[in-house]
Design a protein around this nucleic acid. Structure first.
Length: 381
DNA sequence: CGGACACCGCGT
DNA sequence: CGCGGTGTCC
């Protein structure tokens, strides 16, 4: 039943951090052995699980007949191809980490070992675009709920299965809705009622603009995916045309969906990291507005430090700074390093400047120990 | 062009 | 009050 997901480096199974795009959820595959993580991938639900040494996957097809073994094998083969694409397994991550460690002391002193195996996912452009439109003035926990509400409300469930943690609960797996569905005029009102606030209009307008411009949802999605072949500057220019998409959101989509590996999205959080570790001017206390000029300044600096995969490096630093991962890999680092740093995280911020990454911002991780599980019976992919 | 300011709702 | 910002106005 379970298939082996062959990995280019063993560390991935132990400490990969997966940001499941549409659910906008950070989770660590390695943090809770043998727990399942599931998400919709195109026409199916994919389950991931890992033991001490290996990452496994399996495929659940909708309406799948009990037998049909050949069909299942074909599906597993397809899933493997898609997972390799989704995890971008052809990118040699160890080589990248080695380069970052040479270029950057922050990497070589702790981060490199504690946060090994973190790779950028190649996420669907449309769902990622909408997810990040939701992210303005917002925190991860609420963004996750909003995107799940979007899926639950605007797409039919692919299938339903018992919750791995509690088999008495059936979980419905909804794919991300199509642009044409979200383009309907009444979507704005509905999303407002669902608590999306001013972002309701952005989502509806963006979806409508996509469908109107390209004629159909299918062509719209093909257009977005086609931006993978455009230059970073051209692709960014296209993204900035959408309502609710500024520089930060555009850069997130460029990096996480459009293969622009060098792009470093700058938010207040990254700003703090840049000040603390990379000599950017600014105060850790005063919240200065992010001007285009300052954005470029930070961006340029970080690209200079990290090189042409700067966006990937940024993801590692970002994860290491999340409170939910503040103790991640600390013990491993202590046993490996002769002189371990006394602080749990070298990047840990001080003071109450922007404490947006408290654990309360994060939804319960499906692979982390479940202490308090929400009663929701549906899961957006 | 850069600098204010509002924007929704939720958590602290 | 502030949040992993953006549109709009001046």
């Amino acid at each position: 039943m379970w298939q082996i997901l062959a990995l280019p480096e063993s560390q991935l199974c132990l400490s990969a951090v997966l940001k499941c795009g549409q659910s906008f959820r950070w989770t660590s595959i390695g943090s809770a052995p043998n727990q399942e993580y599931r998400f919709c991938l195109r026409d199916r639900v994919v389950c991931l699980k890992q033991d001490a040494t290996t990452l496994f996957y399996r495929t659940i097809l909708p309406l799948s007949q009990p037998s049909a073994l050949p069909q299942q094998q074909i599906a597993e083969a397809e899933t493997l191809v898609w997972l390799r694409d989704y995890f971008q397994l052809d990118v040699d991550l160890q080589k990248l980490y080695a380069e970052w460690a040479i270029r950057d002391k922050v990497f070589s002193s702790g981060i490199q070992t504690r946060f090994a195996g973190i790779r950028m996912l190649r996420q669907d452009p449309f769902e990622n675009l909408i997810s990040f439109i939701c992210s303005s003035n917002n925190n991860i926990g609420r963004i996750t709920k909003m995107v799940q509400a979007l899926c639950r409300h605007y797409s039919a469930p692919l299938l339903s299965m018992p919750d791995p943690a509690d088999p008495l609960i059936e979980v419905q797996y909804h794919p991300f809705p199509s642009p044409s569905v979200l383009a309907a005029p009444d979507v704005e009102t509905t999303l407002r009622d669902l608590g999306f606030g001013y972002r309701a209009k952005f989502i509806q307008r963006t979806a409508k603009m996509l469908v109107d411009t390209h004629g159909s949802a299918d062509l719209a999605e093909k257009f977005l995916a086609g931006l993978r072949n455009a230059s970073t500057e051209d692709a960014r220019e296209e993204l900035l045309k959408f309502m609710g998409v500024g520089r930060k959101v555009a850069d997130c989509v460029l990096l996480m969906s459009l293969d622009k590996k060098e792009v470093v999205p700058v938010d207040t959080h990254v700003h703090q990291i840049a000040i603390k570790h990379y000599g950017l001017k600014g105060s850790l206390n005063a919240k200065s507005n992010m001007t285009p000029k300052l954005y470029e300044e930070i961006n340029t600096k970080l690209v200079t430090v990290w090189g042409d995969y700067a966006g990937w490096a940024h993801s590692v630093l970002f994860t290491s700074d999340l409170k939910a991962f503040s103790t991640h890999g600390v013990e491993a680092a202590e046993t490996t390093l002769p002189t371990p740093p006394p602080t749990p995280s070298p990047l840990k911020r001080k003071g109450g400047v922007s404490d947006q990454t408290s654990t309360a911002d994060l939804p319960p991780s499906p692979l982390a120990g479940r202490t308090k599980r929400r009663r929701t019976t549906e899961a957006a992919r």
